[in-house]
Amino acid sequence: MTNTLTQTYLKQYPFLTRQEFEIAAKSFLEQSKKSVREDGGDLWVWNEHEKLKGFGYLSRKSIIQKLKSESLNENFTFITTDDENFEQVEEELEDPSTLNIASETTEYLTVDYHIIYSTSYKVPVLYFNTYHKDGTPLTNDEIYSCLIEPSRLEDIKTAGFHGGISQQDHPTLLIPFYYLHPCETATLMKSIVDKPQSTILNSNNNNLLNGEIPIEGYIRSWLSLVGNVVGLKVGIGYFL
């Protein structure tokens, strides 16, 4: 139980300050290490900003199966192409010790997930980029058809608490990333906590009574709600 010993509450739940985000992120990292057996969570990494202290972010790389979608329309083309008209290399005889694998049988995608603090919204934001095996990125349409689970598609399109997918430059790396828009995150984080009528309104310690989530549990709770839309699961191991 990580959260019984050190429970700190946010000053302004559901909003985080940058310092609180870093604490939350590092607690999440600890939980992910402990949940290794369950989820392979050891793969999360904390990245410090090259120049600015306190501007770090979490990241992990995942390999996921590419969804085969029937709704994929015809004008969908694979970006990965071969070069035509190149003289081939002579490999004299077919080498019998080389296993002949049916070409490109397994379709998989690489996803970079980043959890970054948003100064404007004061909440964590889930950034992601998805690539084919040669590094070519998925197009907008491919993201919807290959990454997002069909049952979640409506959800993301009507933009419930996921807030829809947008694209902007990664605040640190300065290359374009997709992200789940954080406009509904605060509402979401508020809605998941119990709100019994607190009678001790002026007490400094009424957070617990309000059922607020402590800093240490913030990211796992948030991620378990928004992550699976884009193929990122937070297993039960993070909560043990």
Binding site: T80, D82, Q88, E91, A102, S103, T136, I175
Partner: peptide
């Protein structure tokens, strides 16, 4: 030595990646 990678057609030849969208 053997071991040139085959392209997505299963032939010995180069591949190409289009990063323009990114």
């Amino acid at each position: 030595g053997v071991g040139w990678e085959k392209n997505s057609q299963g032939k010995l030849g180069p591949r190409s990646a289009d990063l323009a969208p990114l």
